[in-house]
Design a protein around this nucleic acid. Structure first.
Lengths: 343, 343
DNA sequence: TTGTATGCGTTATCAT
DNA sequence: ATGATAACGCATACAA
């Protein structure tokens, strides 16, 4: 039961290859009667066009590339799942690559994808302006590129992410309403989203006339290994808790930072939430299994991946991208209050 | 800067297309001198062969399919990461599909992959003998299939997984050594790996002359939604704790069961580890962030994916698979003792 | 409305 | 050692 081709179908039907091809593609030049006959036989023999031949002919790959920092990460694999669904529905393929939070690797990923003839690329940039000139060039001259998750990046294109400001703003307000006014905030160094998320924090403080203390704003290097990051966080916690007025709450602006700080605290003498209330961006299903259960800012990760992929595929089929009207879609993050901020 | 083809190179070099092609493919019929010249020019113009044309010609796709129950799952996305690395190193592509623990979806995934002309497929089966006849047929007649993770499945092929017996055996012994002899065990219903993992538990009990109580062996339906599973676990916990001699420990035989039971317990009146010690298969990075930190049986997920993919690619390039010597590779799971089993 | 012929970019067979 | 040519499976311009 070897693969059946157009030629085989043509022979079975006693027609020419082109008639069969046109019939299957619903060409207007073929009569309904023959179309039906063709489709019926194709169906019966479970005909599936050879994609390599098709793509070679058409000059399209029906494949998009996705560049993500790390795939073995709950938040990002949820995004991938959404992307996967959208791609499947549109009969597109996905080739994904991991930038590992590194600009150079990111560039090689893009080059690889272009060599693979992908029709479009979606990126969650490794840093604020990583490979900007190169990405801009590729986007304008060769292959459309859109941004997801980390959308605070200068490229003029579709951007699908989350309302960063709102998430940290609401979370900070919640902490304040609990009487936790001395809030440390963990930020990703050189991360595009950092500024908006920090703004949410700052605005909430300002609104409540709470002075900003620089010593409570911590920038973490995102290129560190897990162990190095843990060590850095541990050091920071020690420093913070030795201040004359130590913080009584911590806000994590990214999934990684929130979950890591939790591990560091679990390993320390400080109690959550008694000593430090914790809240932050986190998409882990284990939030409620933690003890105390973790209050989180949860992003609609699946939707981000799903919408971004649909947008990219749409863009892929646009003939002329000059003067194209790009959209920025910011979904709402939702705050889920649990025990790490109780009391 | 449009894509450069063999034809372009030939023109630049003033040679024929076939000479250039042979030169790039290190054919013995081309002189070293011209080979060098060809490669140099190809390099300079960053020539990349069109994979669609190549695959069409060769009749291979250089693509493998991976079918996994769920990708947005820490354990499975770690496997995927290993697979991704191996594929990249071998210049292979991956198309992955999710069976969602469902036999029918699994079958449609296989059919899809075959239609995509994948050179081979690796599956973590949805259940004990899901689609066995079909998979056997495909494997023998069409496309090589290997198994990973859930390797307790009758197909004669490569199997890459973990020593299930050893993991639960050691974990159970550890619980017993702590004086926790009344151990409930959570199993996946119809899951191939269940029997070996249960055997580990039973052997450890036997070795310590502890009678087996059927009432402590719980089979959970793997096709349930998260909410339904939580509810089922909640009900089971209530039942267990009302027994005349309630269990003082719980062993989870899969990642899902271990992490879910933890959430259910966190939401209950029962304390971990005071009332119930908890240990089980789990690859989450949050194990140490849990309070109490979770004792886990951790699988080398990355290695499973990496090795399986390499084995599959190897198999893909075998001409005659009759009488092929298939391997079963069982890696060691490692037990990480933490606070959920202290005291 | 249907069929013929060409070419997408490769590899491979056969001449030269 | 190098080149001309056919073929992979498909879509399409053009002819009938």
């Amino acid at each position: 039961m070897t693969k059946i081709t157009l030629k085989d179908l043509a022979k079975i039907l006693g027609m020419s290859i082109s008639t069969v091809s046109k019939g299957l593609n619903d060409s207007y030049e073929i009569s309904e009667a023959t179309k039906n006959k063709i489709k019926q036989v194709a169906e019966k023999h479970n005909y599936q066009p050879n994609l390599f031949a098709k793509n070679l002919k058409i000059g399209k790959s029906n494949t998009i590339g996705i560049i993500i920092p790390f795939m073995a990460n709950p938040f990002q694999s949820q995004i991938l799942e959404g992307a996967h669904k959208a791609a499947l529905e549109n009969k597109y393929h996905i080739v994904f690559m991991q930038s590992r939070e590194n600009d150079e690797i990111e560039k090689s990923c893009i080059q690889f994808l272009i060599n693979q003839n992908v029709d479009g690329i979606m990126i969650s940039p490794a840093s604020q302006s990583s490979n900007y000139q190169y990405i801009k060039h590729v986007h304008e001259k060769t292959t459309p590129i859109i941004l997801f998750d980390r959308v605070d990046y200068p490229l003029d294109t579709h951007k699908i992410g989350v309302n960063s400001f709102e998430g940290t703003y609401q979370a900070t307000k919640h902490l304040i309403s609990l009487g936790r006014k001395n809030i440390a905030v963990l930020c990703g160094k050189n991360l595009g989203i950092t500024s908006e998320r920090l703004n949410g924090y700052l605005s909430a403080l300002k609104e409540h006339h709470i002075p900003v203390k620089e010593e409570l704003i911590i920038y973490c290097d995102y290129e560190l290994t897990k162990e190095e990051l843990d060590l850095e966080l541990k050091t920071e916690i020690l420093r913070l808790m030795k201040l004359k007025t130590p913080p009584n709450a911590v806000l994590g602006t990214t999934d990684t930072l929130t979950t890591r700080i939790l591990g560091v605290l679990a390993d320390s003498v400080y109690q959550v939430p008694q000593d430090l209330a914790v809240i932050g961006f986190a998409n882990t299903e284990l939030a409620q299994s933690l003890n105390p259960s973790l209050s989180t800012i949860k992003q609609p990760a699946f939707d981000i991946g799903y919408i971004a992929t649909n947008k990219l595929i749409e863009l892929t089929n646009v003939k002329n991208r000059n003067d194209y009207d790009y959209e920025t879609i910011l979904l709402q993050a939702t705050i889920q209050l649990r025990n790490s901020t109780k009391l």
